[in-house]
Design a protein around this nucleic acid. Structure first.
Lengths: 189, 189
DNA sequence: GTCTATAAGTCGATAGAC
DNA sequence: GTCTATCGACTTATAGAC
């Protein structure tokens, strides 16, 4: 899957962080998973704090790209909202995984301030995408009952993250779907 | 504040877990906070796994009592929903803290299965309270736009937990309030 | 019930050879 | 860029005196 060692390490660390939390895995775990010695990891990521920043940078960049690609063609607001929900649904991985923002938030104080800032930027980006989706959906009729797109977005991002948590508590993606049911009913594509 | 050492340890551990995550504090931290030696903690809680179960048991019992007390007198559905939102709002502690269920969920796999079961019971209790609130509010007109109380509850619990996360990301309780704005607008007390 | 002392292991991180 | 070897700090946990 991974072309180079650095990418393999990021992949392994992201998987571990989203499943066990950032304090729940060690360089020894990564070393075993990737197949190198743990001292070698320090060549790519001098410190674990450094690794946490790299993880969050890549995560933000990935979802900025996802959004940009989806924005390339014109869509209904409902289609945008559906796509965002789909991304969060895919992120739970059968109820075993959470958004990196969620796991990092629980250990916020042990992480470098740069991570908190990247999470803030991720949330602004996602909130902006959601607000645009609701505004478009309000205009084209693809989302019902929209009064204020900004207020809708401010409620929807927490709902998406909370729905991932719900699924994770019982390792059951159905709990994610139940949490999203009310919102999904409002999409008329 | 705490009468006995065991309670003081539970208080300290709960504060630490909700702020730093369960993997983010050690017996040494508790010892310093409570003012005893770390070996003495093992007399009250033989292992850290044991402590995690005790924390979750007390947390569940506390909120079952909160609900029972609030249920003692008849109220509108809107008043119930308001009370639940108020409890979660109080739990964020200025944006520094999360619900124990949320922090424990991120380190789910490192905790004893009993904890996962207690979280499940906590969620069932809270979901039941929410559903009753929406059902009552549907009947007495204190909550607008309720079609299916069960579906509303399934979306609201994740929203409450997600709103806590939002506030925690930037240590700003206003983000909790913004997340709850849409729901709060529907309460007509 | 709290203490001192200590075990046995893991943690992130470094030095230096290849 | 990966390795072996090792460091010092920290982790949970135990034994046994008081």
């Amino acid at each position: 899957m991974a072309i180079d060692t650095k990418t393999a390490l990021l992949d392994s660390a992201e998987r571990a962080a989203r499943t066990l939390g950032f304090d729940g895995f060690s360089y020894a775990d990564l070393a075993e998973d990737v197949g190198i010695r743990k001292a070698s990891i320090h060549h790519h990521f001098p410190s674990k704090a450094n690794l946490s920043v790299a993880l969050m940078q890549r995560y933000l960049a990935k979802f900025e790209a996802v959004r940009a690609e989806f924005d390339a063609n014109p869509r209904t607001g409902g289609a945008h909202l559906d796509a965002i929900i789909g991304n969060y649904r895919a992120g739970i991985n059968g109820g075993k995984s959470l958004c990196l923002c969620v796991t990092f938030t629980t250990s916020r104080d042990s992480l470098p301030p740069e991570v908190a800032d990247l999470i803030r930027r991720f949330r602004i980006m996602m909130m902006d995408w959601l607000e645009a989706a609701f505004r478009t959906g309000q205009g084209d009729g693809s989302i019902t009952g929209v009064l204020d797109p900004a207020i809708e977005a401010a409620a929807t991002l927490p709902l998406l993250e909370g729905a991932q948590l719900a699924a994770r508590t019982q390792e059951d993606p159905v709990l994610f779907d139940k949490a999203m049911q009310l919102l999904k009913q409002r999409i008329k594509n």
